[in-house]
Write a protein that binds this DNA or RNA. Sequence first.
DNA 1: GTCGGTCGTAACAATTACTGTTGCGACAGC
DNA 2: GCTGTCGCAACAGTAATTGTTACGACCGAC
Lengths: 144, 144
Amino acid sequence: MSANSRLTIASHALAWIGLYQRQGHEVATSEQIASSANTNPVVIRRLLGDLRRAGLVESRRGVGAGWSLARELGSMTLLDVYEAVEPGPLFAMHRTTPDQECVVGHGIQPAMQRVYDGVEQTLRKELARVTLEDVLQDVLATPR
Amino acid sequence: MSANSRLTIASHALAWIGLYQRQGHEVATSEQIASSANTNPVVIRRLLGDLRRAGLVESRRGVGAGWSLARELGSMTLLDVYEAVEPGPLFAMHRTTPDQECVVGHGIQPAMQRVYDGVEQTLRKELARVTLEDVLQDVLATPR
DNA sequence: GTCGGTCGTAACAATTACTGTTGCGACAGC
DNA sequence: GCTGTCGCAACAGTAATTGTTACGACCGAC
């Protein structure tokens, strides 16, 4: 499918910030999170920027700068994260319009669109059932 | 997401062959299907090749060559097509292993994997509920 | 047995998306 | 002012998808 890792990395960042704050720290830096996720700080800043626009995190600038949660992890679901960082739909239509003179070419897009809409709805419901608190608890419960 | 159109085009091809056979023809050529889907015949042959490997269509070579259904449209679901033409998972993990010394870096992949597995299961169930016969009927019911 | 039409498949180009990287201005506390 | 971080633009590398060309394999018709 050529899947991307944005939902994974964004969830990683949120869990990391949440845990870090529980350990008494005010803000987390993109550099710290990038080190945990083994990627570049700019990648983290890009994703956290999306999450900030969605109201899930806040950023502070200046010297004591960094990121903090805007809400409790228990009130954020993976659907919130998904909608914040995933732009497009799951399945694509034809890249060029099919032959409208052909019965199939004419009716296939509405037909498939109905199916895809239903599938996306179901996927959203599934993602909405998992909070970031659930994820963090699951992370902490992983044996080492 | 960078979604692809394979499920769409493959379904288009199956619906087209099905309808064409109902009109009394034995086989459909990739050139005819490509014309309806407004793409290149090789693209169609590639996808139908996947469907053939999955046992959904058959191909005949030689002069009267072309493609025909291996089963009734009513016995094929979109899940069959999805599994035949979609190689990878929906969501990707980190491209590089996260920091295993970090609690989050260590536990995040198993935690997210569990979620993703559940989501894919649900998606499969949803796709399995729709047969290609349903799709064709929906196509034919589309007003022009 | 040759011919003609189609499949099967490899190879390559064009486009696009994703990720990583560099660079630098903006900001705010010291 | 100085310092550390964000914000953001720009670009490179990689990979996937799709389109295209090319050509051999196949097989029925003649």
